[in-house]
């Protein structure tokens, strides 16, 4: 379990803070981290990975502070950033040198992940295209078996087929007691995987909760005409997407993209009122 307690962070101590008083409690599962450019998603991932320390507040991951100078604390988390490159000739060479620090690493799973992406692991990383390199890195990151895996824009650069493979690999590699936080702008590509979400805006956390939290209070529907009771409506080809107050006993699947749009619209406060009623 990840506990984020009132954290604030600024890169330039006299400048605008990148994160302002962010608090959340994140249970094991797959979570979406969404927000506009500059919302503080990457900063939050850095803090969770322990490569930056909050100016105020604290983060606790399974009883450890991720920025502690202690292998026991650091070894539970891994962050795969969008523009990361692995400093070895091949992903297999990298895995040999790097995985020894991660006791949960599963070599068999790593091989099968590579195979799923059509790779052997011996291809030179430097001569790979962006997408192929991304596949190699994802195959490795998913087999590390860390308690908390943080992926920044994992689908960027992947073709449609590879995105499908990635969905399958996430579903099969991430166990129930692991936490996976995926920061992405393209929610729809991984939508059905998410157990929860963290929605950010301008350095603040608008809402963090689980699928159950959302569906207990909101209903996500597609209709031919605008719903008069809708809290938020968005026109779509051939109809409307609406967020409505939930009907007890009839939960709908969460449309994370729609929820994100609603939370970034003038109806944000109305939606939040409903969501927070749920969590209270």
């Amino acid at each position: 379990m990840i506990l984020i307690d009132s954290i604030s962070f600024a890169y330039d101590k006299k400048g605008i803070p990148a994160l302002k008083n962010v608090s959340a409690r994140i249970e094991a599962g797959i979570h979406l981290l969404a927000g506009e450019n500059g919302a503080g998603k990457t900063t939050l991932l850095h803090l969770l990975a322990g490569i930056s320390s909050p100016d105020h507040g604290k983060i606790i991951i399974d009883g450890h502070r991720p920025d502690d100078d202690n292998p026991d604390s650091k070894g539970h988390t891994f962050l795969l950033e969008e523009n990361t490159s692995f400093p070895m000739r091949t992903i297999r060479k990298f895995a040999e040198a790097h995985s020894r620090f991660y006791p949960g690493f599963d070599a068999g799973r790593f091989c099968s992940n590579l195979t799923a992406f059509g790779l052997t692991g011996d291809e030179p990383l430097k001569s790979m295209s962006l997408g192929t390199r991304k596949k190699a890195l994802l195959a490795y990151a998913l087999s590390l078996g860390v308690d908390v895996l943080l992926l920044d824009e994992p689908t960027n650069g992947l073709d449609i087929e590879s995105k499908e493979i990635l969905r399958g690999l996430i579903a099969s590699n991430i166990s129930d007691d692991q936490t996976l936080i995926i920061s992405t702008h393209t929610v729809s590509e991984l939508e059905n995987l998410f157990d929860g979400a963290l929605m950010m805006l301008g350095g603040t956390l608008l809402w963090a909760g689980t699928q159950e939290d959302a569906t207990a209070r909101l209903a996500f529907e597609k209709t031919r005409s605008p719903e008069p009771d809708a809290l938020y409506t968005e026109p779509q080809l051939g109809g409307y997407l609406s967020i409505l107050p939930a009907v007890e006993g009839d939960p709908t699947a969460v449309d994370w993209r729609l929820l994100y749009s609603a939370l970034h619209s003038p109806k944000c406060n109305l939606i939040l009122q409903h969501l927070n009623k749920c969590s209270n």
Binding site: I51, K74, N83, T84, S85, P87
Partner: peptide, 10 residues
């Protein structure tokens, strides 16, 4: 580009 990976090593 690998600075973060290096820094993360426990």
């Amino acid at each position: 580009d690998s600075r973060i990976i290096d820094r993360l090593i426990p």
